[in-house]
Design a protein around this nucleic acid. Structure first.
Lengths: 155, 155
DNA sequence: ATGACTGCAAATACTTTGCACATGT
DNA sequence: ACATGTGCAAAGTATTTGCAGTCAT
C-alpha cells in the first residue's frame, strides 16, 4: 500500500494521518505474515526511530477497532495483518506449538446458516487446524526440530 | 467423565493420578465451553480449596502436551477444553471483541489437499469468524451491550 | 485553537519458574 | 525409595494506561 492510499483509509475512518500510523499500516501491507506487535515495532522503527512500543499498540488497537486490521492470538501473543490481505490459515502442533501457515485455497462454507450468525457481518474466516506434527507423533523418536519450542514449551 | 475414566486416561499417558489433575479434567468434562485457566481454578477450588493457580497451569500444560486437552487463545488468554468435546466455533466482533459461540454443524472442507498438511495429523478444526456485530456496525448508534467490552476494549 | 495523538514510564494481566516439601507408584 | 507433582512466592512476557507535551486539522 502506498502512503497516499493509507492516508485515505485513515481519513475515511476519521483517524488522523500521523506518520506513525502510516508506517504501521505500511509495514503490515508489505509483509504477508501476521506480525506480532513487537515485530511491527521493530520494522516501523527503521523509518521512525523515535516511535515507542506503546504507540504501536495504540495504533494497532485503533486500526483494529476501525476494521482495517485483524488481531489473531497465537502462542500467547497477538499477531496482526491487514483485513484486506489474502486469507491464509494456521496449522498448529499441539505438541510443540509449532505454527505453519497453510493455503487452503478459497474456503467455501458448505452450509453456513445466516440465522446462526446473528446479524454479524463476516469480515474474514480464520481457520486453526489443531494437530500433531510428525516430530511429536512418536514421542520416543521426537527430535529437537530447530524451530520447535522444546521441553519447557510454553502452554 | 467419571473419576475412574479420568484415572485411566492419565495412567494411559504415563501421568500420575493426583486429585488435582482428576479435578481439572473433571471440570473440563462437565463444562462445554472453553474455560480460561482462572475459571478452571475457580471451579476446581470448590472441591480442592488448597489447590494453587500454578498447579492448575501445570496440570493444563501437562494434559495439553499429552493431547488430552486443547488450548485455544482467545482475546489474549488461553481457554481450554477436552480434545474429545464436540466442536463449536467462535464468532468474534472486531469492534467490541464480543465472542459468540456458533454451531456450524459438521464442517467439511471442500478440498483439503493432504500434501498441504505436511504430514500433520489433524485433531480438530477451530474456526474463528471475524466480524462486525450489529451494535458496532453503526458507530453512531452503538449501544453499550451488556456483555460487550467497551471503549477501552482490550486489543 | 483544540482535541487527538505521541512518548515515556509505571501499572496490569496472564503465565511460567524455582525450590522445598509432599505424594503416587 | 524416589521420581513426579504440589504450593508458594517471585519472575517473566505481553499489553494497557496516565499524563504532559506535540501535532494534525
Amino acid at each position: 500500500l502506498e502512503p497516499g492510499q493509507i492516508a485515505s483509509l485513515l481519513q475515511g475512518k476519521g483517524l488522523r494521518v500521523t506518520p506513525q500510523r502510516v508506517a504501521v499500516m505500511g509495514v503490515l501491507s508489505r509483509r504477508r505474515e501476521h506480525l506480532s506487535a513487537e515485530e511491527v515495532f521493530e520494522q516501523v522503527r527503521q523509518e521512525l526511530p523515535n516511535i515507542s512500543l506503546a504507540t504501536v499498540y495504540k495504533a494497532l488497537g485503533e486500526l483494529r477497532r476501525k476494521g482495517q486490521i485483524r488481531a489473531l492470538p497465537v502462542l500467547g501473543r497477538l499477531r496482526f495483518d491487514l483485513t484486506s490481505n489474502p486469507a491464509h490459515h494456521h496449522l498448529v502442533c499441539e505438541g510443540c506449538q509449532r505454527v505453519v501457515d497453510v493455503e487452503l485455497g478459497t474456503l467455501r462454507w458448505p452450509e453456513m446458516p445466516p440465522e446462526a450468525l446473528m446479524g454479524f457481518d463476516i469480515l474474514s474466516v480464520e481457520v486453526i487446524l489443531r494437530s500433531i506434527c510428525p516430530d511429536c507423533r512418536e514421542p520416543s523418536t521426537r527430535q529437537p526440530a530447530s524451530n520447535n519450542l522444546q521441553e519447557g514449551a510454553k502452554l
